[in-house]
């Protein structure tokens, strides 16, 4: 049986290549049909904010990569409620269908996977 992976993405989308590189791992795993979930934690939740204007920062938008997740079979998407609240983000500002988890649910999630990687 395949080992499951929880990938925790903690980088803001414009703080460097971290957010994109976490997504690359998720998309590659999805392409191999591996059981994995993606958790947006801390500044990582900024990746979920829709209607970002990456072009003003001369950056490439992450939206296409994020939207590709379900197409690649990565459907277990989670966001930390505390991280969202701390950053003033509310559900209708998010561009992806994520399950929002409180601290207890987060703890349970972390215990459910064979491997965990944080980026």
């Amino acid at each position: 049986m395949a080992q499951s992976l929880l990938l925790i993405s903690r980088q803001a989308p414009w703080s460097g290549p971290g957010a994109r590189e976490a997504l690359d791992i998720a998309l590659a795993g999805g392409a191999f049909d591996l059981p994995l979930a993606l958790l947006f934690l801390d500044d990582g939740v900024f990746q979920l904010r829709k209607d970002q204007q990456a072009v003003l920062l001369q950056q490439k938008d992450l939206a296409a990569n994020l939207q590709a997740l379900p197409l690649f079979g990565v459907e277990e998407l989670y966001a930390c409620q505390r991280s969202l609240v701390e950053r003033g983000l509310v559900a209708d500002q998010l561009g992806l269908p994520v399950s929002v988890l409180d601290d207890d649910a987060l703890r349970a999630l972390l215990g459910r996977f064979d491997q965990v990687m944080t980026i």
Partner: peptide, 10 residues
């Protein structure tokens, strides 16, 4: 490539 990471994880 990243396939090597996923293979290792498995």
């Amino acid at each position: 490539g990243l396939g090597q990471l996923h293979e290792a994880i498995q």
